[in-house]
Design a protein around this nucleic acid. Structure first.
Length: 274
DNA sequence: GCGATCCTGGCC
DNA sequence: GGCCAGGATCGC
């Protein structure tokens, strides 16, 4: 699924948004609408003009000149693509915004782990998903000492789980969590309580480093992910540990192991991560 | 905090 | 046929 770098790449590649109005809104019979009805979504978007496309963690927020903005999460297999009409129908299309200039913004998601919701607040404060999010990992306002305070509220959490906890800080997923722990040379199983402040600051720095690198390379394409134009990312060729069990790290500094952690796979280099 | 669960598709 | 997958929520 898209993590922060993939969602940010999608955001950037969808810009500039069409300056014309939304002439039609389509929603599939199984569109993953949460906390809103098809009618409220249609009413919110029809005839609206887009004013901005922003991101918080893995959520995209499409703002309009109306009283509501669209809040999208892409789950594991969601895509957001801009295509020109007429365009052949794509499988698993759940929402399309048809602009007056014949551009279409199309949301597809085979697994339907993504969500479509609305916000009526300029800061998204009324949206249950956005409410739960901590600060975005790349928000400069998230100072290391601020991050440490938030993290210390969960002393028993393993570092891997801490990185994936969107309420502490938002945007990290399984790939970049593994990569960040490698870069910080920290054992994914170490708990917060057993880390020094310096180590937690190092983890934040590593997290930002790998996320920024992911954006630089247009995201990681393992299978499904493509950007807003349909192009693949290149970050998969720079991953040090993710998916490399039985191989050496990409930089050749150690061997990589995989083990199940919190119901998911963690890849790490035991000789390097302590 | 942890495991089960929501889905579809691809691969062995 | 079974297992795995880039996520997040819900119930214990």
């Amino acid at each position: 699924m898209p993590e922060l770098p993939e969602v940010e790449t999608i955001r950037r590649t969808l810009l500039p948004l069409p300056s014309t109005r939304i002439a039609n809104v389509t929603l599939s019979a199984v569109a993953p609408l949460e906390h809103c009805s098809r009618q409220t979504v249609r009413r919110a978007l029809l005839n609206a003009q887009c004013t901005a496309l922003t991101r918080h963690g893995k959520y995209l927020l499409l703002w309009t000149d109306r009283d509501a903005g669209l809040v999208l999460h892409l789950g594991m297999t969601g895509r957001l693509l801009r295509v020109a009409a007429p365009s052949p129908p794509a499988p698993h299309t759940h929402c399309e915004l048809h602009f007056a200039d014949r551009q279409i913004v199309r949301y597809t998601d085979p697994r339907r782990f993504g969500t479509i919701s609305l916000t009526h607040d300029p800061r998204g404060a009324d949206n249950p998903f956005l409410q739960r999010l901590g600060p975005d990992y790349l928000d400069p306002a998230l100072r290391p000492e601020h991050f440490i305070v938030r993290v210390r509220r969960h002393p028993r959490l393993a570092l891997k789980a801490l990185l994936l906890h969107q309420g502490i800080a938002a945007g990290m997923g399984n790939i970049y969590a593994c990569e960040a722990l490698y870069h910080a040379a920290l054992d994914p199983c170490r708990t917060v309580a057993r880390c020094s402040d310096a180590e937690l600051a190092r983890l934040l720095h590593a997290a930002r480093h790998v996320l920024a690198k992911g954006i630089t390379h247009g995201g990681t394409t393992l299978r499904d992910y493509v950007d807003g134009h349909g192009s693949r990312g290149a970050m998969q060729t720079f991953l040090q540990v993710y998916g490399r069990d039985g191989l050496s790290t990409l930089d050749g500094r150690g061997m990589v192991s995989r083990f199940p952690q919190h119901g998911r796979s963690t890849w790490f280099a035991p000789e390097i991560q302590r």
